[in-house]
Design a protein around this nucleic acid. Structure first.
Length: 381
DNA sequence: AATTCGGGGCC
DNA sequence: GGCCCAGAATT
């Protein structure tokens, strides 16, 4: 190995590769965390865990995983469950298309593979929500096939160990890393090796301050030897989230609907797909968002388009902010009254709900918070 | 190759 | 505030 950074595709140092795999495996077998999805080789459990773990930390996933496999113990249970039930078990976990795709894929497996997670690479990678990483993870962890499973942890570890300066934000880099990672898998030990690589990234070779002194492969880590572990991996920065200004309506029921609020379900696809929310609009810009009389008028007009006739006030009864990866919702909630209360779910996706129905629906955090506050307030009078 | 998809934990 | 996380789908 030269003292120059190497490109991921050009590594031929076989001796160093063997040292890496064996050292890592020894360490992993001693230090591996006891995680719920590591207690069996149930391919369905492995699969569910891998979907949940996409862009999501282990500590966050654990309670969701336990609840999910408790409620949907087998792939068939998941396939046959109501979609809203699946989404409810995903509430708060984020990236909700994962839940939708997971169930769709479970149904595919029942339909085409007799209810058993297939063993073929083409079959697995063809399932909805299963990309290159998850394909490798399922095949290696559940079936011990020598497929790479390259995630953010793995790219960080390999970038440092081999001192690679490839930008890990580029798809081409991931492809190169997959070849490298596959060449590192010790014969017959794909399951443990792939998990070891990720475990090292999560526990030792962490993003900010890696624990090189206790690293099982630190002696031959090129990045560390060159004192460059903190500069690696190279990654182009993400763009900043753009603000979006929104006006929501808190429409309180009266008479037979007293104590209830009018809510609606979001579309099947896209942002927060199929989740429930307060009816709201995007303000044309920040100025209009601040002019509440004008905002109330726009809100009324938009709801009227859905056949929902309300009178919106210019009184802000709640305010919230919701941060996504690529945008920030700034929400003002205006008080509103229904002019006609016979809105039904079947026709427009709108529905009156009270505190007793609240928990039967799946909410994005921001609306869960707003509605919880409201129902508490009402209960106190 | 870029953008769209959540939410939380850490600095 | 920014950064990262056991990424995938869409354009």
């Amino acid at each position: 190995m030269t003292d120059k950074a190497t490109a991921a595709g050009e590594l031929t140092d076989i001796g160093n590769k063997r040292y890496f795999g064996e050292g890592l495996l020894r360490w992993y077998r001693k230090e591996r965390r006891d995680l719920p999805w590591r207690r069996s080789r149930n391919p369905y459990h492995i699969w569910v865990s891998e979907i949940m773990l996409q862009q999501t930390r282990v500590d966050t996933v654990i309670p969701y995983f336990n609840r999910f496999v408790g409620r949907f113990p087998t792939l068939r249970h998941l396939a046959e469950a109501p979609e809203d039930d699946v989404l409810k078990h995903w509430e708060g976990l984020g990236y909700y298309s994962r839940a939708r795709n997971l169930q769709a894929a479970a149904r595919e497996v029942v339909e085409h593979y007799g209810g058993e997670v297939p063993r073929g690479k083409a079959e697995v990678s063809g399932l909805k929500g299963v990309g290159p990483y998850t394909t490798g993870a399922i095949l290696s962890i559940a079936y011990d096939q020598p497929e790479p499973a390259v995630d953010g942890n793995v790219m960080r570890v390999l970038s440092r160990y081999f001192c690679l300066e490839d930008d890990i934000a580029r798809p081409a880099t991931r492809v190169a890393m997959e070849s490298l990672a596959q060449s590192l898998i010790p014969e017959g030990q794909a399951a443990d090796f792939n998990q070891a690589l990720m475990e090292l990234g999560a526990m030792v070779c962490t993003p900010k301050s890696p624990s090189c002194p206790v690293c099982p492969v630190g002696e031959h880590c090129e990045g560390r030897l060159q004192g460059r572990e903190r500069e690696l991996p190279v990654k182009t920065k993400a763009k900043k989230a753009r603000p979006v200004f929104r006006l929501a309506a808190l429409i309180e029921g009266t008479g037979a609907y007293a104590g209830k609020v009018l809510v609606r379900q979001r579309p099947e696809t896209g942002l927060l797909a199929q989740m429930w929310e307060l009816p709201h609009i995007e303000a044309p810009d920040e100025e209009i968002w601040n002019r509440l009389d004008e905002g109330a008028g726009l809100l009324e007009a938009a709801l009227a388009e859905d056949g929902v006739r309300v009178k919106a006030s210019n009184e802000v009864v709640g305010e919230a902010q919701h941060i996504f990866t690529h945008l920030v919702w700034k929400i003002k909630v205006l008080g509103a009254a229904a002019l006609e209360e016979r809105y039904v779910a079947d026709r427009t996706g709108y529905r009156w709900i009270g505190p007793e129905e609240f928990e039967n629906y799946a909410w994005p955090n921001v609306f869960r918070k707003l509605l919880t506050e409201y129902f508490l307030l009402v209960r106190r009078g």
